[in-house]
Amino acid sequence: MKRITQFDGLYGEAGPQQANVPSGGEYLFSELLETRSRAFDWVIQPHVHARLFQVFFLETGGVEFSEATQQRQLTGPVILLIPPALLHGFIYTPDAKGRILTLADSLIDQLFPATSALSAMLGAVQCIQAFDEPYLAPVVGQLFAQIDEELFGDQPEKRTMLHLDIQRLFLVLYRLWQHGETVQHTANSLPAQYFRRFQQRVRQVGTTHSIVQLADELAITPVHLNRICQAMAGKSASQLVQEHVISEARKYLTYTNYSVSEIAYLLHFEYPNYFARFFKKHTRLSPTEFREGKQAE
């Protein structure tokens, strides 16, 4: 079975190039979307970056965006945020134009710690398609261009300016994302809003938080959270957490070459044997048995 490729650097590169690392050793790179895409005949096969966060800004043209379990047809302007270790692939139309910003996960953590309001946005794949005043698409495009100009320029205090430019860009993206979330929730009930926030948090923390902790973060009781989950999905909060983790584990075992220990780490298990027991309890197969079965298909 064909395996999904892992890249330590950019797509098609074995690892980060030294020229892409500004002062301080934080991996950061900016490029035109069409440059690399054209080199691969507009097809970027599904792949993962273990430690890199990417922002894709498709200004014009179209793309078929592939995740682990779905494909979406998108037309510019659109922004995609791809956290580390998440599968993604693209098939662009030949007229596609835009920019790609790639950052080390350590730089994201430094600029936007876990306590930041942006953590909910940064913890999952996001698709931003609505650009409203004062942040119309050309304005956002200029923020990307400013980072590109600073990165490849030679001005004093370059690192400080880059950090400020990145923070401004992500704060603008957060405002656009929040506005989209607010519009979507306007027609939704309060339980639906709680349920969506619960799903987002589960994607970020997996099994590291108890249901009590997750409920506390939503400022509701565990009983209330379970009632919401039953009403929205017909399952308890614990069942939804377990299903999410198993789904992610299957994805990694099927589409990547990560070892079982590495997958356990990515899914926030303290020890690999905890992950192996959890996986077998819910699938009746060990992670190795599951992977071998997929390879034989």
Rank of each mutant, 00 (worst) to 15 (best):
M1P: 07
R3H: 09
Q6Y: 01
D8T: 09
L10D: 04
E13Q: 15
Q17G: 14
A19G: 15
A19C: 05
N20T: 11
V21A: 03
G24I: 01
E26G: 02
Y27S: 05
L28A: 01
S30N: 08
E31A: 15
T35N: 13
H47G: 06
V48M: 05
V55N: 04
E59T: 15
G62F: 00
G62I: 02
E67Y: 03
T69V: 06
T69E: 14
Q73K: 14
V78K: 01
P84S: 08
A85R: 14
F90I: 07
A96H: 09
S106W: 00
I108K: 04
T115D: 08
S116K: 04
A117P: 00
A120H: 03
M121I: 02
V125D: 01
Q126P: 01
Q126E: 12
A130W: 09
F131R: 00
E133H: 10
L136R: 13
A137S: 14
G141Y: 01
A145Y: 05
L151R: 13
L151Q: 09
F152K: 11
G153V: 05
Q155V: 06
K158E: 00
H163L: 00
L164A: 10
L164E: 07
L164H: 14
Q167V: 10
F170Q: 10
V172E: 00
V172W: 04
Q178T: 07
G180T: 05
E181C: 06
S189K: 12
P191A: 10
F195E: 00
F198T: 03
Q199K: 14
Q199I: 03
Q200H: 13
V202Q: 05
T207S: 12
H209M: 13
S210G: 08
V212H: 13
Q213D: 13
L214S: 02
A215E: 00
L218A: 03
I220C: 05
T221C: 12
V223L: 15
C229F: 07
G234Q: 11
G234F: 13
Q239G: 06
V241H: 09
Q242G: 05
E243S: 12
R250Y: 07
Y255E: 14
T256N: 10
S261G: 12
I263E: 08
F269C: 04
N273P: 06
Y274N: 11
A276M: 02
R277W: 07
F278V: 13
T283H: 07
T283A: 07
L285V: 08
S286F: 11
E289P: 00
E289W: 01
E292F: 10
E297W: 03
